[in-house]
């Protein structure tokens, strides 16, 4: 499993397609392709943790792409804080489990793991 992170509009999907062999992806949902794009849109869904766990077991060579969203002021609304916290924690857990982690910045990838 490979985790790709970075801010929005940084070219993460293009990077995954040109450098990591991604050809098909599911956008914002856990699907049945070998890539989840915009994982941050799915983290608050029901049974997210167990579904993601199952997905990774079924797709050991998957690429998971998630926006980095924590570099701002703590949001006022509780739901936004929970989403931000959850997304960050999910990325930390995925990074531990991943074979490789990339951060994409201005379309350039840096391997963090």
């Amino acid at each position: 499993m490979i985790l790709v992170t970075g801010g929005m509009a940084q070219g993460k999907l293009d990077y995954a397609m040109s450098e990591l062999g991604v050809t098909d992806y599911d956008d914002g949902v856990i699907g049945d392709t070998d890539c989840i794009y915009n994982l941050q849109k799915a983290v608050m869904n029901e049974d997210f943790d167990s579904r993601l766990d199952k997905y990774i077991i079924l797709h050991p060579d998957c690429v998971i792409i998630c926006d980095e969203i924590g570099s701002g002021i703590v949001p006022l609304r509780r739901e936004d804080r929970e989403w931000r916290e959850k997304t960050g924690r999910v990325c930390c857990e995925l990074a531990k489990r991943a074979d490789a982690v990339y951060r994409v910045f201005c379309g350039i990838g840096m391997q963090l793991k």
């Binding site: 970075g6 924590g70 570099s71 701002g72």
Partner: peptide, 8 residues
């Protein structure tokens, strides 16, 4: 400038 990672 870096303005891409606040999730807002």
């Amino acid at each position: 400038n870096e303005v891409f990672a606040d999730g807002i």
